[in-house]
């Protein structure tokens, strides 16, 4: 399946687009997804942190990603 991952802030700069399209196999976890993204875009390694949101909640490593989930890349936040 193809995921359309939302990107923000420096993540959008690194990916070069507001949406990162990624072909993944059904049933992957957030940890798998992160590994895949890091190998495709090694610049993410230099960030303080990289979180993945699943349906507007922070996902943990074991969270399973499904086809119609809203996935977003959350680089270090800096509001306020």
């Amino acid at each position: 399946m193809t995921l359309e991952i939302l990107t923000f802030g420096i993540a959008r700069d690194i990916v070069g687009s507001t949406i990162l399209k990624l072909d993944i196999t059904e049933g992957v976890t957030v940890a798998d997804l992160k590994k895949e993204i890091l190998s495709k875009y090694p610049r993410f390694e230099s960030l303080t942190s990289l979180m993945i949101a699943v349906n507007t909640e922070y996902g943990n490593d074991a969270t399973i990603v499904k086809a119609h989930d809203e996935i977003a890349l959350i680089p270090p936040v800096s509001g306020g």
């Binding site: 923000f8 802030g9 922070y58 977003a72 959350i74 936040v77 800096s78 509001g79 306020g80």
Partner: peptide
């Protein structure tokens, strides 16, 4: 807010 809210 500075730690968790997704604002950049």
């Amino acid at each position: 807010l500075k730690q968790t809210v997704p604002i950049w």
